[in-house]
């Protein structure tokens, strides 16, 4: 796991407040119901901060945000440096 991914994992653990749930860069988040749509907004904003890229929300689908690893791949694919 990269340092950026680690930072995002820590943020998600803080966000979901589920004691006992372990998360790594490949843990399904959307499809497992661990995070909801408003939290996805929060995660996209955090992803923009960590990657220093602007991510057009309209180009992101639920599957693109399902794991931390996919989030960073999405930022790379559709994000623009800012």
């Amino acid at each position: 796991m990269t340092a950026d991914e680690q930072q995002m994992v820590e943020h998600i653990v803080e966000l979901i407040r589920k004691p006992g749930v372990t998360i790594n860069e490949n843990t399904p988040l959307v499809s497992s119901g661990l995070i909801d749509s408003m939290e996805l907004v929060d995660l996209l904003l955090r992803l923009e901060d960590i990657t220093h890229r602007r991510i057009p929300a309209g180009k992101v689908q639920p599957k693109d945000m399902d794991t931390v690893a996919k989030m960073f791949a999405t930022a790379e694919r559709v994000g623009k440096p800012r």
Binding site: V30, S37, L40, V41, A57, G58, V60, Q61, P62, M65
Partner: peptide, 8 residues
């Protein structure tokens, strides 16, 4: 239009 906020 499909988007990240709507469950697939």
């Amino acid at each position: 239009y499909p988007n990240f906020k709507v469950e697939s």
